[in-house]
Design a protein around this nucleic acid. Structure first.
Length: 471
RNA sequence: CGUGGGGUAGAGCAGUCUGGUAGCUCGUUUGGCUCAUAACCAAAAGGUCGUUGGUUCAAAUCCAACCCCCACAACCA
C-alpha cells in the first residue's frame, strides 16, 4: 500500500491558536482524508514549537515554570486541533526529550556546514534583541519602545552555510524535484535564495538558555532553525530509524510568512543530511478581515473557535476550504460567511437532502446502493494539485445540478399520477447520485457527509433537525 | 529603480500563459414550481475589462510607459 506523509507548521506556543494555524490544519486535513479514502496509508504530523526567549520570559512573567507554561499551551493547541476535526496521526513537541536528542545528532551530522563567527550589531537591552541597520537608522539609534540608545555589541554564533547548497536547491526548485506552490511563490523563493546569507543557528547561553544545547559547546544553545525545522523528521525517528518509507513528505503545508524558511533553510538542512527534499511545499495565503490584515491592535481578529461554536465545525471548514482560496489571500467577513452558510449549506445542500429524503420516505423508496464509490478524474486531478477550493467548487456544482434535476424530473408529479415504477427509478437515481457527490464532499465536511450517508440508509428517514439550521 | 500580488457589472471573483461575439456567485427585477430548511428552478437588467500609446484583420488577453491598492523585508500568521 502506498504511504504518504503530510506535515503542518508547528506553531510557537507563546500565544493562542488563531485563524492562520487553522488554515494549515484544515488544508492538510483535507489532503489526508482524501488520501485515506483513496486507499493510502497516511501519516499526518502536527506539533508545537516550544523553545526560545519569548516563551521563557512569558512563563517568568506569569510566575510559572517554563515546563508548566509550555505544557499548558500545548494542550490549548491540541484542543484546537481536535476542535477542527483534524485527523493527525502523530504529535511532536520540540521539548520532547527524543526530539532534543535527535536534534543534537542532526547538528553533528551537519557540522561540516557549520562554523563559528562573530556577529556585530546594535542591540537593545530592553528588547533583548539585535536590530537591523535600517531599524537603527530609522530610530536614530534610540529604541522607541524603551527610550534607550542601542548598544553596539558583538556576539559569537554558529552559522549554517546555506551557500553550500544553493545550487542544488535552485536546481531542485526549477526541476520540480521540490515543487513550491503556488507558482508565483516559487519565483519569489528563487530570487530570495540568491540573496540568502548563511543563517545564524545558535545563541550564547548568556542570551538564551531555553533551547536545545549545542553539542560539545556548553556556551551555546540552538536558535530556532535546526530545532524547529527538524521536527518533520525527528518525529519519524530520524536519525536512528530509517525513515524512507515516509520521507520525503508528499506535502508540507506552511503559511506564506514562513515559506522562505521551508524553501531555503530546510532544504539546505536536508541536503546536508543526505535526505531527499519534500515533494511539495504548499504555501497558503493569509485571511483578511474585510480587506485588512487582522491584528490585535485594530481589533478585527476573527476567532475560529467563535465561528465553530456559532455555526458548527463543518460550516467553518466549508467556508475556509471553499471560499478562502487555497493559495492567495482571501477575505473573511461575517456577512459573507453567513451568506455562504444560508445560501449554500442550508439552501443548496441541507435542503437538497431534506427534500430527497422526504420524497423517498413518503413514497416508501428503498435504496439498493452497493456501488463502490470513487472520485472523479477531474476531482482527483485538482486534489492532487492541492487546488482544494477548486475541487470543492467542482463538487458543489454537482450539488446544484441535483436540485435542478429534481425540478426537471418532478418526482412529486410522478407520485400523483401513480407512476410508481418511474418514480422509483427517478428517486433511486437521484439518491444514488447524491451519495456519490456526498463521497466527494467527505474530505471537506466529514461530519456532515457521515450524517447524510446515515439518512439514506434503509429505511430512509429525513433528518429530524436540519443539517444546517438557520438562526 | 527592494521583492511579490492585484486593479474585469452594486459586491466578491474567473477569464490573460495558447488574441477572435465578456463569464460565474451573491444582490436586484420578473416568471415558474410546491417534494423541501419561505427552500428549489427559469429568465432579464447591469461592464468604455486602472490610464495612455503600440502591434494586429482582430486585444481584458501580446508589447511599452504610467497611475492606484495590498502584502512581504529573520519568526507578534
Amino acid at each position: 500500500m502506498d504511504k504518504v506523509y503530510i506535515t503542518t507548521a508547528i506553531p510557537y506556543v507563546n500565544g493562542n491558536p488563531h485563524i492562520g494555524h487553522a488554515m494549515d490544519y484544515c488544508l492538510a486535513d483535507v489532503l489526508a482524508r482524501y488520501f485515506q479514502m483513496s486507499g493510502k496509508e497516511v501519516k499526518f504530523q502536527a506539533g508545537t514549537d516550544e523553545h526560545g526567549n519569548k516563551i521563557f520570559q512569558k512563563a517568568k512573567e506569569l510566575g510559572v515554570s517554563v515546563e508548566e507554561y509550555t505544557s499548558e499551551n500545548t494542550e490549548k493547541f491540541k484542543d484546537f486541533i481536535h476542535k477542527l476535526g483534524v485527523s493527525y496521526t502523530d504529535f511532536i513537541r520540540t521539548t520532547d526529550t527524543e526530539h532534543e536528542k535527535r536534534c543534537q545528532e542532526i547538528w553533528r551530522k551537519l557540522s561540516d556546514h557549520i562554523y563559528l563567527a562573530k556577529y556585530e550589531g546594535y542591540y537593545c537591552t530592553g528588547c533583548e534583541r539585535f536590530v537591523t541597520k535600517k531599524e537603527f537608522d530609522e530610530n536614530d539609534g534610540v529604541c522607541p519602545d524603551h527610550q534607550k540608545p542601542y548598544e553596539k555589541l558583538e556576539e559569537e554564533n554558529y552559522y549554517f552555510r546555506i551557500a553550500d547548497f544553493k545550487n542544488k536547491i535552485r536546481k531542485a526548485i526549477i526541476d520540480g524535484e521540490m515543487v513550491i506552490l503556488p507558482e508565483f511563490r516559487k519565483k519569489e523563493m528563487l530570487r530570495l535564495l540568491e540573496e540568502s546569507p548563511d543563517v545564524s543557528i545558535s545563541r550564547p547561553t548568556t542570551q538564551l538558555t531555553w533551547g536545545v544545547p549545542v553539542p560539545d559547546d556548553d556556551t551555546q544553545v540552538m536558535y530556532v532553525w535546526i530545532d524547529a525545522l527538524s521536527n518533520y523528521i525527528t518525529i519519524l525517528g530520524y536519525p536512528e530509524k530509517d525513515i524512507s518509507e515516509w520521507w520525503p513528505a508528499v506535502a508540507q503545508f506552511v503559511g506564506k510568512d514562513i515559506l522562505r524558511f521551508h524553501a531555503i533553510i530546510w532544504p539546505a538542512m536536508l541536503l546536508g543530511l543526505g535526505l531527499p527534499l519534500p515533494k511539495t511545499v504548499v504555501s497558503h495565503g493569509m485571511i483578511l478581515a474585510d480587506g485588512q490584515k487582522m491584528s490585535k491592535s485594530i481589533g478585527n481578529v476573527i476567532d475560529p473557535v467563535e465561528v465553530i461554536d456559532k455555526y458548527g465545525l463543518d460550516a467553518f471548514r466549508y467556508y475556509f476550504l471553499r471560499h478562502i482560496d487555497t493559495f492567495s489571500d482571501s477575505d473573511f467577513t461575517w456577512a459573507k460567511f453567513e451568506e455562504a452558510y444560508n445560501n449554500e449549506l442550508a439552501n443548496d445542500l441541507g435542503n437538497l437532502v431534506q427534500r430527497l429524503a422526504t420524497l423517498a420516505s413518503k413514497n416508501g423508496i428503498e435504496i439498493e446502493d452497493n456501488n463502490t464509490r470513487n472520485f472523479s478524474g477531474e476531482y482527483k486531478e485538482l486534489m492532487e494539485k492541492f487546488q482544494f477550493s477548486k475541487a470543492f467548487d467542482l463538487v458543489w456544482e454537482k450539488v446544484q445540478n441535483l436540485n435542478k434535476r429534481i425540478d426537471e424530473e418532478k418526482p412529486w408529479s410522478l407520485a400523483k399520477n401513480g407512476e410508481t415504477e418511474e418514480l422509483k427509478e427517478c428517486l433511486s437515481n437521484l439518491i444514488s447520485d447524491l451519495l456519490s457527490v456526498n463521497y466527494e464532499l467527505s474530505p471537506f465536511i466529514p461530519a456532515t457527509t457521515e450524517k447524510i450517508f446515515e439518512v439514506f440508509k434503509n429505511p430512509i428517514t429525513p433528518p429530524t433537525t436540519p443539517l444546517f439550521p438557520k438562526n
